[in-house]
């Protein structure tokens, strides 16, 4: 039987194991024939969407790994706008509205309101898993 999963990630990409664990979990969900409806990044987890991060090649490339998971699952990588703005994770629209010269968010992440997380939580028929 196939199960639907919705993930919430709140742990920092550099100060916690949250992303490594969540990515491994997401891959297992997909390889087990289950579906992933969305991944929501909140609190320090939004830092993973920063397009300016550079990591040594032999370390885990979390942002690229998430993009590969999303492409395979055909699901959105959702990011809370308020949590992002606080941490300098800014999309094109916010950057131009605030007179900043460029965006800092990777375009494959979708900026949404916290209401989207409330909707994910309220949705029937799926398992909700939190990585912190």
């Amino acid at each position: 039987m196939s199960t639907k999963f919705s993930l919430l990630v709140t742990g920092s990409p550099t100060e916690s194991q949250a992303h490594l664990s969540a990515i491994r979990f997401a891959k297992s969900v997909l390889s087990g024939g289950h579906t992933l409806s969305n991944v929501f990044f909140y609190q320090d987890a939004v830092n993973v969407a920063n397009r300016f991060t550079l990591k040594p090649e032999d370390e885990a490339q979390l942002k690229e790994d998430w993009k590969a998971v999303a492409a395979q699952a055909q699901c959105e990588l959702q990011l809370c706008v308020a949590a992002g703005n606080r941490r300098g994770i800014i999309n094109h629209e916010e950057a131009s509205q605030n007179g900043m010269d460029t965006n800092s968010i990777d375009d494959e992440f979708v900026v949404v309101g916290l209401g989207q997380l409330a909707a994910n939580l309220a949705k029937n028929g799926q398992q909700f898993i939190h990585f912190k």
Partner: peptide
């Protein structure tokens, strides 16, 4: 940020 989520859930 937890209280923010509580407020948004209640608003929904």
């Amino acid at each position: 940020e937890g209280v923010d989520l509580a407020l948004v859930c209640a608003a929904f």
